[in-house]
Simulated scan of single mutants.
Amino acid sequence: MSSAQGCSAVASASAIPHLAINRVGKVYPSPHGDVTALQDINLDISPGEFVSIVGPSGCGKSTLLKCVAGLEDITSGDIAVKGTPHDGPPAALGVVFQRDVLLDWRTILDNVLLQAEFLGLKRADYRPKAQQLLERFGLAGFEDRHPWELSGGMRQRASICRALLCEPELLLMDEPFGALDAMTRDDLNVELARIWQGTNKTVMFITHSIQEAVFLSDRVVLMSRSPGQIVDIIDIDLPRPRALAVRESAAFGEYTHRIRHHFAELGIVQE
């Protein structure tokens, strides 16, 4: 492992995982018969590790994230954060959803500070951090604007600022860039990677994009069609920090080809 990769702080096998998902299943009752969304999911994520989950639509990726966030109950198995089982939202958690879910009647700054208000913290204490994050994500000067005045990419940047405001140790991201144009998505990928390397957060990232997963991650988890199951976990051995140019390298191409080939064998994509 290179020294740059050491920045991910992947713990040794004997260490307690930051997130431990053990034999988790999720079944939704239905008048037409129960629907199994997740089946026997086992996954440990080490402190400071960036793990992406890739799979076809309907495979349960978002359901798994909601279970980890404590927004959905699990049917079987258990989920532990730092060795402690949880049955609700864990402490020191940040979540970024597919949609920005900003409140249109609040300014951008007030939307970011909502995270502190939700946790019962003083707004004034977090205002400088909110402004710093907005500046870092290219939103300086837009603090007093409202969400409806911003582009989709700018709104999603604001939602990431909100999730990062209170320094979460565990960051869950559910396809946060899926609706953005390619250039904006690339820009946010680079910024997210930079922030992650500088803060050592543990990240579980949901995406449909194989390239995005390889670019961002220490490991990429592959899921099958419903019922969602983990079919493979691939270590990404690319040096950090990563510039977008790494996507043109032979090693990057080998990873994306390997993942795509695996999905092709499952009948999920065509080669």
Rank of each mutant, 00 (worst) to 15 (best):
L113M: 05
Y255T: 08
V81T: 04
S76C: 14
L172I: 08
G138R: 03
I53E: 09
E72W: 08
V101E: 11
S226Q: 14
Q229K: 13
L134C: 01
V190G: 03
A69S: 09
M1S: 13
K66P: 00
L113P: 00
R23K: 14
D218Q: 05
V203K: 03
P128L: 10
H208E: 12
R240F: 12
R162E: 00
F252L: 05
L134M: 09
A9D: 13
I268T: 10
R185V: 05
P89E: 10
G70F: 11
A243C: 15
G25C: 11
P56T: 15
D40S: 14
Y255G: 13
L222H: 06
I79A: 08
M183F: 12
C59D: 14
P89G: 14
H261T: 15
E265I: 02
E117W: 03
L134H: 01
C161A: 06
H146I: 00
A116T: 01
C7H: 14
G94T: 01
R155I: 08
L133W: 00
S52K: 11
A193Q: 11
L38Y: 10
L102T: 06
K201V: 04
Q197E: 10
E248V: 07
P239E: 07
S151K: 03
Q229S: 11
S249V: 02
A250R: 13
V112I: 03
I160A: 00
R145L: 00
Q39V: 10
C161K: 08
A124P: 01
Q270H: 08
R240P: 06
I195M: 13
D174E: 04
A140S: 10
A69T: 11
G33A: 12
V214E: 01
L71C: 11
Y255V: 10
L43D: 08
G60P: 13
R260I: 04
G94W: 01
E49W: 07
A15N: 11
A11W: 04
R127G: 02
P89S: 14
L165A: 05
G138C: 04
G198Q: 15
A69N: 09
R247E: 11
A140K: 12
V220A: 02
K201N: 06
A4I: 06
Q211D: 15
R127V: 06
E135T: 10
G153M: 02
G267K: 07
A193R: 03
R23M: 04
L38E: 10
A13W: 02
A140D: 00
I206R: 03
G48N: 11
Y255L: 11
I234T: 09
R194H: 13
L188G: 05
I195F: 15
D78P: 04
G94L: 02
L216M: 14
L119F: 11
A92C: 09
G120S: 12
A37C: 13
F97P: 01
H32E: 13
V203P: 01
L222I: 06
